[in-house]
Design a binder for these strands. Sequence first.
DNA 1: CTGGACCTTCCAGTGCAGGGGAAGGTCAAG
DNA 2: CTTGACCTTCCCCTGCACTGGAAGGTCCAG
Lengths: 129, 129
Amino acid sequence: MRIGELAERAGTTAKTLRFYEEQGLLPPAERTPSGYRDYAPETAARIDFVHRGQAAGLTLAQIRQILDIRDGGAAPCEHVRDLLDARLAEIEQQIAQLTALRDTIAELRHDAAQPDPDSCSADQVCRYL
Amino acid sequence: MRIGELAERAGTTAKTLRFYEEQGLLPPAERTPSGYRDYAPETAARIDFVHRGQAAGLTLAQIRQILDIRDGGAAPCEHVRDLLDARLAEIEQQIAQLTALRDTIAELRHDAAQPDPDSCSADQVCRYL
DNA sequence: CTGGACCTTCCAGTGCAGGGGAAGGTCAAG
DNA sequence: CTTGACCTTCCCCTGCACTGGAAGGTCCAG
């Protein structure tokens, strides 16, 4: 299978697949005599895994770690569990930060509900911020 | 006042102030005969405003828009209000996305609580993802 | 008059996940 | 035998807000 066909099947682009190969997410592809990349159909499952990892908020580098463990012959379950734990903690923190930011902005917005341009000195640029 | 002193007063770095000038957040500074930037003390208030804008989650480009309006002689109150509204909507959406992602990951993590490496086929790399 | 702290400009890189496009090779259909 | 779709490598660009470093100029104290 050539790169364009694989890309379409996996719902991505040829460009991205070459990038994945460069990043070590896909093993160097077999080549036809003329130099075209030639993929086994199973490669699509690997790309799907990459997409599942991305859907779980993992970076390509983290997904690569998992693949490396699997390619080394081991089951990556525990590493996956640790990554999920770490990601979960990060997300909780991001949510907390965004929630705090939302409250801050909501308050500023509330104060600016009836803007009174005359009460804003040029010095402070805008008294609602 | 030279750039280093202003940077310290405003809680930032000289490098950043040159960057702000380049980005149009600060007007081109006056120069001493020898070419050093020479700032009026009021410039610190402008930098403070930039910091308040950042604390509200605005980008430098958005902060610049506000400053441009003020520099044009108008009061930017209404624009600020619109920016705050837009930012608020973005943040709500980000929070919703992160919350959904958190739930997804929490479920995956739950399934991976007692990893069973033997049930993971190499094909799917990891059945918990 | 020398050393060190400060300043200048300019170039380049960071992280993330690709995208754009040039220059050229290959393959199948008409 | 040509056309058009596909493939190859290569390098640069995106957004965001800086940060690092090189090469050189300036200022002040000792």
